[in-house]
C-alpha cells in the first residue's frame, strides 16, 4: 500500500548565492524566540543557532577563500534522532517534518548525540530576555524552558498559519494551487537577501524545488547537476539539497606553495 503524503516540505540551498551574511540566523532568532546569544553563552559553546553559517577557509594567504555552508535541521526522512528518544518527544509527522514536542522532552540529550548535523540545542539555562525585549517574542512560538531540546522546525507555525488561513478563506485544504497563492516560507528564506534559500513542497509538481529533488532521486550518484545533500552517506535521507558553489577562478592548488 502506498500512502499518499500530501506535503513533504523541503529546502534548497544555493551555495553559489550564499554570501555568508548571517541574515537567516538573525531572522530565525527573532522568529523562533531563541534566547539571546550573549558572550557568556558563546564562550560556554552553548549558543543557540537553529540555522548557522559554517565558515571554512580554503587556501593560504593571500590566495584565500571563504566557503559558507548554512546548516539547519535537515528534516531527515530517516532521522537518527527519532528512534532514540525514549518519550517520543521527536517524531516524524505526515508532512515530512521532524517535529520536536517540547512538553514531552525529558532532556536525555540522546537525540543531540545522535544528530549527524549538530542542529539540536539543549537549554542549559533558563532562557531570559531583557525587559524591553519581552514584547518582541513571537506569540506563535513556545518559549522553551531549561532542560529540554529544541531545533529548527522549518517554521512550522507559518505552515500551520497558512493552512488555517486557506481553510478559513477558501474552504479548501492547503494544496498545490492554494499554496502557490499563499506564498509562505520560513523566516530564514524570507530574510535571505540573495535568495540562496528556497523552500517548498517536494511532492508538488509545480514547485520550484521539486525539480532538484526529482533530479537527485532519479540520477543518484551520477548527476551533472550541482545538487547534493550533506553527510548523505550515513543514510539519513535529508530534505535539504545543497547546490555546489561554482568557482569562477580556479584556486591554485595549495600544495603548489610548497
Amino acid at each position: 500500500m502506498v500512502i499518499k503524503i500530501e506535503h513533504k516540505w523541503g529546502m534548497v540551498v544555493d551555495l553559489d548565492k550564499c554570501t555568508g551574511c548571517n541574515g537567516c540566523v538573525v531572522a530565525c532568532q527573532a522568529e523562533n524566540n531563541l534566547p539571546i546569544n550573549t558572550k557568556d553563552l558563546f564562550m560556554q559553546k552553548r549558543a543557540f543557532e537553529w540555522i548557522r553559517i559554517e565558515r571554512y577557509w580554503e587556501g593560504e594567504f593571500p590566495n584565500v577563500k571563504a566557503r559558507y555552508l548554512p546548516v539547519m535541521c535537515q528534516h531527515c526522512g530517516n532521522a537518527p534522532c527519532e528512534p532514540v528518544c525514549p518519550v517520543y518527544a521527536t517524531y516524524h509527522n505526515d508532512q515530512g517534518l521532524n517535529v520536536q514536542v517540547y512538553n514531552r522532552c525529558v532532556g536525555t540529550r540522546y537525540c543531540i548525540n545522535n544528530c549527524t548535523y549538530q542542529v539540536r540545542f539543549f537549554n542549559f539555562w533558563e532562557p531570559t530576555w531583557p525587559e524591553r525585549l519581552q514584547n518582541q517574542l513571537n506569540p506563535d512560538v513556545t518559549v522553551r524552558t531549561r532542560g529540554i531540546t529544541e531545533k529548527c522546525t522549518f517554521c512550522v507555525q507559518r505552515i500551520r498559519r497558512a493552512e488555517i488561513t486557506v481553510e478559513r478563506r477558501e474552504r479548501t485544504k492547503l494544496n498545490d494551487k492554494t499554496m502557490a497563492a499563499r506564498n509562505f516560507m520560513p523566516a530564514c528564506v524570507q530574510a535571505c537577501p540573495t535568495n540562496a534559500l528556497m523552500f517548498g513542497d517536494q511532492n508538488n509538481q509545480e514547485d520550484k524545488i521539486h525539480g532538484y529533488f526529482e533530479e537527485l532521486h532519479n540520477h543518484e550518484g551520477h548527476s551533472d547537476s550541482r545538487g547534493y545533500r550533506i553527510l548523505e552517506e550515513i543514510g539519513t535521507d535529508p530534505s535539504v539539497i545543497y547546490l555546489k558553489k561554482v568557482d569562477q577562478f580556479k584556486m591554485e592548488h595549495s600544495e603548489s606553495h610548497g
Binding site: 543531540i112 548525540n113 540545542f121 539543549f122 539555562w125 531549561r146
Partner: peptide, 15 residues
C-alpha cells in the same frame, strides 16, 4: 534548580 549549565557540558559533548 539552575539547569545543567553548571556542568561543563557543551554543544557537541552532551554526555
Amino acid at each position: 534548580n539552575k539547569g545543567l549549565g553548571i556542568t561543563g557540558l557543551n554543544r557537541p559533548v552532551m554526555w
